[in-house]
Amino acid sequence: MFELRRLRLLHEFALRGTVAEVARSLSYSPSTVSQQLALLEREAGVPLLEPDGRRIRLTAEGRLLAEHAARALELDEQARQSLAQAPAETIRISAMPTAAETIVPAALTALATTHPQLRVEMTESPPEEGLFELTARRFDLVIAEQYPGHTRERREGTEHELVGEDPIRLALPPGRSPVPLGALQDRAWVLEPVGSAARQWAVQQCRAAGFEPDVRFEAADLTAHVRLIEAGHAVGMLPDLIWGDTPAPVVLAELPGSPVRQVFTAVRAGTRASEGVAAVRAALVEAFAPSRRPR
């Protein structure tokens, strides 16, 4: 009989690729992880790991057992959900920054009335990180987004549900008249870091308008974008959700095609029946609606 704790270590190794990363994620020492994987290999009776230069990798048998480990962890989660007492349930959320600053506080206010015994823990993190850690079971629910033509990977064993659509607009310094995107080719831009979906999408919009953006400022925090634009140092593209219930301090102009990004929640299939997860999802949808008022 395989021990579930060791199967989780194998699952984590399949996701993260190194013993050091598994140890860091689960707060173990690397030697403990290596020892437990060696014990699992002994239980399996076949090699699960093999040398790969100076590192190690899963064998074919190791990959096969890792797939079974993922299913075993999902079944364990479903069983725990069936036996859990809802009032004591804890939901761990990963929220992208704009959601963490706007809809999450409003959703928590609603949940304090409808589900006062529900404990919600939130970590602000980029969608890319949150969705990965959802699979690794660090989070139970992730609030993320996807841009037109740039859909997110749907990892096996996870489910996505739309929260709402969030318009994206050009953001110009105060006092400027709204202008089309193509008229901003000589301006300095502030965009999110390279590798993010938002950065990739924004650059593609500029290229479609006939120019390569002069990205002088790069920041993951959209509040920094707002401050730089408000001070007249840059232009950018910002989603409406960032303003919450306050007026925008910058000039907003329409982008070609009036694009919207989709804000969604992602959960593991094993937790979709959880009363707490369902309550949090419903509260987020309800909190999102008022932020969609006309600008």
Rank of each mutant, 00 (worst) to 15 (best):
R155Q: 15
R71K: 15
L39G: 01
Q78L: 12
Q117I: 00
Q205T: 00
P148L: 01
I103S: 02
V250I: 11
H225G: 04
M122K: 13
R63G: 13
V260T: 13
L184H: 05
V235R: 09
G164P: 03
T265D: 04
F2V: 12
Y147E: 03
R199P: 12
F2G: 04
P97V: 06
A95D: 03
Y28M: 04
D76C: 02
A20I: 02
G195F: 10
Q146G: 00
E128P: 00
G236A: 02
R227A: 02
A95G: 03
D52A: 14
D166T: 03
E101T: 13
L26T: 12
T18S: 12
Q200K: 11
T123E: 14
S258R: 15
I56H: 12
S177Y: 04
A183H: 11
Q205C: 01
E21I: 01
T98F: 00
T102R: 09
L141M: 05
P105G: 02
V215M: 09
P239G: 01
T98H: 01
P97M: 12
E101H: 14
L111Y: 08
G244C: 00
G195P: 12
W201E: 03
E254V: 00
P239K: 01
L9V: 02
H233K: 15
P180H: 10
G53Q: 07
Q81N: 05
A198E: 12
A197L: 06
F264I: 06
G149Y: 10
E153T: 14
E218W: 00
A23S: 10
V250H: 08
A14Q: 14
L241Q: 02
D240C: 00
P247G: 08
V194D: 14
A208G: 02
H68I: 07
L83K: 13
H160T: 05
A107T: 02
R137L: 14
T102C: 02
H115V: 01
A188K: 11
R154T: 04
A106R: 09
P259I: 07
V215Y: 09
C206S: 05
I229C: 07
E21G: 03
Q262W: 07
H150E: 09
E43N: 05
L131K: 15
L252A: 00
P249I: 04
A99L: 08
R216W: 13
S31D: 12
Q205H: 03
A88I: 11
L111H: 06
F264Q: 11
A253F: 11
T158F: 07
L170H: 07
R295M: 10
G276D: 13
A20C: 00
E161N: 02
E161M: 04
R54F: 04
R16M: 11
T102N: 09
E192H: 07
L170N: 07
Q117F: 12
I91S: 02
V142G: 05
A282K: 06
Q85A: 10
P116T: 04
F211P: 05
V22T: 05
Q78T: 08
A283F: 10
L65N: 11
E133S: 09
F2T: 13
G130Q: 11
A273W: 06
A110G: 06
H68K: 15
P87R: 15
V104H: 08
W189H: 05
R293S: 04
H150F: 10
I242D: 03
S196T: 14
P127H: 15
R63Q: 15
L15T: 09
L4I: 14
P213A: 00
R187V: 08
R216G: 12
E286R: 04
F132C: 00
R216K: 15
V250Y: 08
V194H: 13
